[in-house]
Structures are given as C-alpha cells and as structure tokens.
C-alpha cells in the first residue's frame, strides 16, 4: 500500500519484481542499483545464497525525484521465483502498488513463465486484491539468448491484459530502466486517480 507522508511531503510506494526462478529479477535490481547515483538510492539488501537462490527478497529503495513537490520513493522488491517458495511470495506481495512481471524468454522456461504469472494472479486474489486493480507491466528478459522465444509467442501466452511490455537484457541493462519507468508511470497514475477520487 502506498504511503503518503504529507508533512515530509513524501510518497512511498512498493513495486514487486515477480517472475519464475532465475529469470533476472535480482539482476534488474542490481543494474538499477549500480546505475543510480548514491543520493538517489538506499542500501540494497539481498538475501540470496551463493547458488543464486533468492530465499526471501531483494530490497532497493529508490528516489525518483520530486513530483508536484512530493519526494517519490519507490521500494523495489523481488520475490523468490522458484515454485517452492510460494509462502514468501505471498508475504512480499502484501501492500503492493505495482508489479513488474519478469519473463524468461528462453524456450525451456516457457511453462515456468505461465505458471508464475498465474501464480501471481492467484496470490493477489487470495489477498482479496483484484489483479486488474494492480498496475503491472511485463518484461521479456534475456532477449539476447539464442533460444529466446519470439516475443509474439510470449505476448500471446502472458500478456492477456495487454499491459505495457518491454524487451530486456537485464545483464547489459537493456530495457531495465524502460521497464522501471513503465511501472512507475502506471503506479503514479493510479495514485493520482486515487487522490482525485
């Protein structure tokens, strides 16, 4: 749930990077962390093991500058992508303001993408959240790999709601900020609508 601190003139929002195991969620955050100057970001907390398992989450607070006199801080989280860590995913989704679904473009992970996005919708519903009410974007990551599935195929399988989607190669940073801007725009738009309503 977004938090607006009027006295400090600060807006805090929570954005979760969701997706199947090893799809590049943490890599997205790492790239953002490395490419952002120190004044704009907080400390990145990463709870991962040397086997690259994200056991709980990564967390990166990010200052997106002033919007109408309010400091806008985005708190970026990742979930553990493996099918086994559903309980953690549910916890991390609580109070979410926006989601980046990171799909792994590799053919071998096609099923895992579908499973993961359905799991995301299920977990939102389980918390009484209508999935259509949460802004989300999709990132087709690992576009540089030779076994990448054509985007149309991924889009047909994953982007049924026709949300903004982006191609990316998170390791090189291609598409990472475009995706972040995409979700930030939707989240802020939603906040404005909420304030207007």
């Amino acid at each position: 749930m977004s938090f607006i601190n009027y006295s400090a003139r600060e807006i805090n929002t929570k954005v979760v990077y969701y997706g199947p195991g090893l799809c590049g969620k943490t890599t997205n955050l790492q790239y953002i962390f490395n490419a952002t100057n120190e004044g704009a970001r907080g400390k990145m907390i990463s709870l991962a093991t040397e086997t690259e398992r994200t056991l709980f989450f990564d967390f990166l607070p990010l200052n997106l500058g002033q919007i109408r006199g309010f400091n806008t801080r985005f708190h970026l989280y990742t979930v553990p992508g493996q099918v086994f860590y559903d309980a953690s995913r549910k916890l991390i989704l609580k109070g979410v303001d926006g989601i980046v679904f990171v799909a792994d473009s590799q053919r071998e992970r096609f099923d895992a993408n579908i499973e993961s996005i359905e799991n995301m919708f299920d977990n939102l519903r389980e918390q009484g959240i209508d999935p259509k009410s949460v802004p989300y974007v999709i990132q087709y990551n690992k576009r540089d790999l030779p076994n990448a599935v054509p985007v149309q195929e991924l889009r047909a399988a994953l982007n049924k709601d026709n949300v903004p989607d982006f191609e990316a190669c998170a390791q090189s940073g291609e598409g990472v900020f475009e995706t972040l801007k995409g979700i930030a725009k939707l989240v802020l738009q939603k906040l404005r609508e909420g304030a207007a309503g």
Partner: peptide, 14 residues
C-alpha cells in the same frame, strides 16, 4: 502437466 514441467525445470535450474 505444466506444473510438473515447471517443477522439474526449476529443480534442474538450481
């Protein structure tokens, strides 16, 4: 079947 393939794919990945 898809869930089974995903589980196996995840097991293999890690």
């Amino acid at each position: 079947r898809r869930l089974a393939r995903t589980i196996i794919s995840d097991i293999a990945l890690y």
